[in-house]
Amino acid sequence: MNIALFPGSFDPVTKAHVDIVKRSVGLFDKIYIGIGVNSSKTSFLSIEKRQQMLRSVFEHEPKIHIIAYEGLTVDFCRSIDANYMIRGIRTVSDFEYEKGIAQMNHTLAPDVESIFIVSKPGYSALSSTIVREIMRHNGDVSQFIPKEALAFL
């Protein structure tokens, strides 16, 4: 069985995240969307709210499972029997950053392969960080967030 993990903060989930997941579904038997818990960062949304939001967005996709995790991502991959880690790439700087992480992950867990999915051009500037900043200033984020997620913001 080909199992993949798509890790991230999803704080909040964006249409770019959804696009990467939807384009990955046909490649794997099961995809875990892993919400990484980083105790050194202050989140905008609670873990519970992000789980609810993602479950709402992907409720009709039986291959997708939403779960929060803490610790090294490669260790979490092993715990769920994931052979693959999906990462979205928007820009050249994303690639450089993700390449370094993938190489370190490969050293730590050679059995987990990183798969890079390049974002569609319309999503290359879209990030959770930018969406959070718009939200902090009471801006309209509806064009950046899946409609199912808006109720959780």
Results as ranks from 00 to 15, higher is better:
V112F: 01
M104C: 02
V112T: 00
S114L: 13
S142H: 04
A68N: 08
F44I: 03
A82M: 13
H65V: 15
I117W: 06
F116L: 00
M135S: 11
R136P: 01
E59G: 13
S142G: 00
D81M: 14
V131W: 06
S93T: 15
C77S: 01
I66A: 07
D111N: 05
R132F: 07
V92C: 05
Y97M: 03
E70Q: 14
S79L: 10
I101E: 10
S124N: 14
M135Y: 12
S142C: 01
L126V: 09
S93E: 15
Q143W: 11
F95D: 00
L72M: 10
S43Q: 07
H65T: 15
E70C: 11
D111G: 08
I89G: 05
P110E: 04
F116C: 05
L54D: 01
H65A: 15
M53I: 06
I134K: 01
V92W: 07
E133Q: 08
L54P: 02
V112I: 08
V74D: 10
L126D: 05
A102S: 09
I89H: 01
S124H: 11
G139I: 09
Q103P: 11
F44V: 01
V112A: 04
Q103E: 15
T91C: 13
M85G: 05
I67H: 02
S128E: 08
M135W: 10
V74R: 05
S93Y: 13
N138R: 11
R87S: 04
D140H: 04
V92D: 02
T107V: 13
L72W: 09
R87V: 05
S79C: 10
Y69W: 09
T73L: 03
H106W: 12
V74C: 13
A102L: 08
Q103S: 14
H106P: 00
N83D: 15
E113S: 12
N83T: 14
G122V: 10
M135F: 11
S142R: 00
A109V: 00
E133H: 05
S79E: 14
S46R: 08
E113L: 12
H106F: 13
L126S: 04
T73S: 07
K63T: 01
D94K: 04
V131Y: 03
L45H: 09
D140Q: 04
F76C: 00
S128F: 06
S128M: 06
V141Y: 05
R78V: 06
K120D: 14
P121A: 08
R50M: 00
Q51C: 10
K99C: 10
A82G: 12
S56N: 15
I134F: 02
L108I: 00
M135Q: 12
H60E: 15
I80W: 10
E113H: 11
Q103F: 15
D94I: 02
P62E: 13
S79W: 10
H137S: 02
I80V: 14
H106Y: 14
R55P: 09
A102H: 07
M104H: 06
P62T: 11
V57C: 06
N138D: 10
S119I: 10
R90M: 00
K120W: 11
V131I: 02
G88M: 01
I64C: 09
I115C: 04
P121W: 08
K63I: 05
L45Q: 10
G71N: 06
V118M: 14
